[in-house]
């Protein structure tokens, strides 16, 4: 591999194929974005269900989380790809990727949401109830916004895992980035070195901005009180 990446002609050949990689990158991006949206929605819904007073909702949320956390993503994908057609449900590889990765990650996200809700003091729920907010309003306006600071780090871990996990569709020939790299790596000249390096770099390009943004946003949330403090000090200085 080391030797391969020193050979310029291999890189020239690889970049001649660039449009194909770009298209594959687009597919990975598409699966990632849509699966992420699905995972966030499921994470919030099942996270709320798992903290509800209704035991049935709690059980449903529990079953969902335990099932998807404790079986491999690959088997879930294979099941949907190979078994569902027998029930006349045929989905495209990209759709399968979005659904499977989204539902799988949603289970982890709902656990983060549940932990976040659990960390909010009881007084917040009581204040909301004393003002006449309904359960859903309490969650959406008062509780969930407060959990962001707490659940952001685990959520971002899950988002990055989600992006990397979209490579699972390679196993069902999904045409994603990993699939393209694989296909190129096993071509007639066997340029696996440059191919996998480029592939890794492209995943990095997707994930790194996300983690960087999250780190900054988290710091900003944590500094918010301090910032208003300094603002206040400034006002007082001016007043004095």
């Amino acid at each position: 591999m080391i030797q391969q990446i020193m050979e310029p002609w291999r890189w020239q050949m690889l970049f001649a194929e660039w449009p194909k990689f770009l298209k594959a990158f687009g597919i990975t991006l598409e699966i990632s974005v849509l699966a992420l949206a699905l995972a966030l929605v499921l994470g919030v819904i099942f996270g709320l269900m798992s903290t509800s007073h209704n035991p049935l909702l709690r059980i449903i949320a529990r079953v969902y989380v335990e099932f998807f956390q404790n079986t491999p993503l690959a088997i879930q994908v294979f099941f949907v790809f190979y078994a569902l057609p027998y029930a006349s449900i045929v989905l495209s590889q990209v759709t399968i990727g979005i659904l499977c990765v989204g539902i799988y990650t949603g289970a982890y996200m709902s656990e983060a949401v549940r932990a976040g809700i659990g960390s909010i003091p009881k007084g917040q729920f009581e204040a909301a109830a004393s003002q006449g907010f309904t359960y859903i309003q309490t969650m959406m306006l008062i509780v969930l916004p407060q959990t962001i600071k707490i659940i952001l780090p685990p959520m971002v871990n899950q988002m990055v895992n989600l992006i990397k996990n979209t490579s699972i569709v390679t196993m069902i020939a999904g045409g994603d980035l990993m699939y393209r790299a694989n296909a190129y790596a096993t071509n007639d000249v066997m340029s696996y070195g440059p191919s996998y390096l480029l592939c890794g770099a492209l995943y990095f390009v997707l994930c790194f901005p996300l983690t960087t943004w999250a780190r900054r946003y988290e710091a900003r949330l944590k500094n918010r009180d301090v910032i208003t403090n300094t603002k206040k000090d400034k006002v007082e200085e001016v007043a004095a």
């Binding site: 003091p121 007084g123 917040q124 009581e126 204040a127 004393s130 003002q131 008062i142 407060q146």
Partner: peptide, 11 residues
């Protein structure tokens, strides 16, 4: 009704 709590419970 409205309520004022011992622990304030501001958001």
């Amino acid at each position: 009704t409205a309520m004022v709590f011992q622990q304030f419970n501001l958001y």
